[in-house]
Computed example of a mutant assay.
Amino acid sequence: MLFVDYHTHHERCGHAVGALEEYIEAAMAKGLKEIGLSDHQPLLHVPHIEGSAMRMEEMPGYVEEALALQRKYRGQIDVKVGLEADWVEGYGETVRDLLAKYPFDYVIGSVHFLGDWDHTNSAELERWEGRDVYETYVEYYRQVQLAAASRLFDIIGHLDVIKRFGRKPERSVEDLLEQTVVAARDAGVCVEVNASGLRYPCAEQFPSVRVLEMMKSHGVPLTVGSDAHQPGFVAEGFATVYALLKQVGFTHVHGFTGRKRYEIEL
């Protein structure tokens, strides 16, 4: 049985396909209890990059359409209105001001950018060249910890996404991972288990089994997302992810309404 998918993208972001309603219909067809609409926040720290996120002028229409669909599908499936926001150091208050304008059910905070480098973008892979991989991981996890501590977000997205394209340091990052899980715990923030990693060169969900074990040990709550960029990817990989959660010992995932968290029993 499938439960929730809180991470989906749509045509407004420029690198996904399909309208919001198509994702809802796909979720219903797959038997989900809840579907979260969470398109990319407009870029705030760099000028708009075509194909990276919705434009600022599109935000009101996105939220208005999502709320209308929430009403339309009430009683059929719980539609949650969310956003995936970028954490970039120095822009926290700008993000806070933007989020305050809209009645979101939840906000995912993700670290896509280190400076102006989108390390999650396959078009920017060459920017790994000349970088110390371990030091890049150090900086990435420092930013994730700051994102958690900011308390701007309800969910930390794809926590170890820095591994997406298979670049991993030779040194152990166990301490960095544990520090990051503890930061999430101390901030009281939920962590997303993102199934999309199963489709990338890293070939495992975000975060890894080891991080899930740390989360279980530290009592960090979690939710689940597919990071679907087309309707057919809604709940993709969830059979693997939900089985893994039970194997690690999790008994609940979490949902959100009006930025308040609640438990959903597995």
Score class of each variant (00 low, 15 high):
148 A>M: 03
95 V>W: 09
122 S>F: 10
93 E>G: 08
119 H>G: 06
103 P>S: 14
80 K>F: 03
99 L>F: 03
69 L>K: 15
76 Q>T: 02
130 G>A: 02
135 E>V: 04
131 R>Q: 15
132 D>P: 06
87 W>M: 10
118 D>F: 03
70 Q>C: 06
141 Y>K: 04
121 N>T: 10
97 D>G: 08
132 D>W: 07
113 F>P: 01
111 V>Q: 10
91 Y>P: 12
75 G>N: 07
72 K>D: 09
101 K>A: 14
79 V>W: 08
108 I>S: 00
112 H>P: 06
106 Y>A: 08
71 R>Y: 12
111 V>L: 13
148 A>E: 00
84 E>Q: 02
74 R>V: 13
70 Q>L: 11
105 D>G: 05
108 I>L: 03
72 K>C: 06
83 L>F: 05
70 Q>K: 15
143 Q>H: 15
92 G>L: 12
141 Y>I: 00
89 E>G: 08
138 V>L: 12
105 D>M: 02
83 L>N: 02
138 V>Q: 12
95 V>N: 04
101 K>D: 05
85 A>S: 15
99 L>K: 00
137 Y>H: 15
90 G>E: 13
131 R>I: 09
147 A>Y: 02
125 L>M: 07
89 E>W: 11
114 L>P: 07
147 A>G: 10
107 V>I: 04
143 Q>E: 14
114 L>A: 09
98 L>P: 04
87 W>C: 11
126 E>N: 13
112 H>S: 01
115 G>S: 11
130 G>S: 11
92 G>C: 12
95 V>A: 07
79 V>I: 10
130 G>H: 08
114 L>G: 02
95 V>I: 07
110 S>P: 01
124 E>Q: 14
147 A>K: 04
89 E>V: 05
74 R>Q: 15
107 V>N: 00
147 A>Q: 03
148 A>T: 02
145 Q>V: 01
97 D>N: 14
110 S>E: 01
132 D>F: 05
143 Q>P: 08
79 V>C: 13
121 N>F: 07
80 K>P: 08
113 F>E: 00
94 T>Q: 15
132 D>I: 07
115 G>L: 11
